[in-house]
Amino acid sequence: MTHPVFLIDDDADVREALALLLRTLGYAVQAFDGAAAFLQREPAGAQGCVVTDVRMAGLSGLQLLERLQADPQPLPVVVITGHGDVSVCRRAFRGGAVDFLTKPVDEQALLEAVQAGMARLEESTALQAQRTQASAKLEQLSAREDEILRLIADGLSTKEIARRLELSPRTVEKHRAGIAFKLGTGSVAEMVRAVLSP
């Protein structure tokens, strides 16, 4: 699945031209005339690479960047500015911007920045999917199995777990088999990774 580019600039000429360029580069583009319009996009929370101007009426590009960074899964942001002074540049990178471009923006630089943004988006989406998968598996464990998994992760042996929980080692072995089935792995290392991922 390809994500769209969210283009935000309050200058209609610039917006129109950059949108056209990005479309010829093969991207789907949604253009907005300001940060507020972008934040109200439909569908809410749609994923994509943000390309924003810094100087805009209302919320500025840098303020939007800070706001997006606060999200649990921040969107990649490419910052474009008409007057690229050092302090704006530093703020942009500190704020987690993918790239910082000055107007007039060259096609190649824009393409690379958007590609980098898209790559970052893919990466975070994949990571997210993995996490979602792991937590779904953990959800299936019973309370006792969950307790035993955490003790396994703490590095305790079956006998030690049985003694700690005042169970028979056989019962503990049976629960371990259930955990291995539900998580789809018998490897202790993989089990530990599943527990550690949030």
Partner: peptide, 28 residues
């Protein structure tokens, strides 16, 4: 001066992007 530069940058940016988009469309 900086205000003037910014004012001029806007149409220049748009022209550059329009032109590059046009070239790319011809290639396509």
């Amino acid at each position: 001066a900086s205000g003037i530069a910014h004012e001029l940058t806007q149409p220049l940016t748009a022209m550059l992007s329009q032109s590059q988009a046009g070239l790319r469309l011809i290639e396509q």
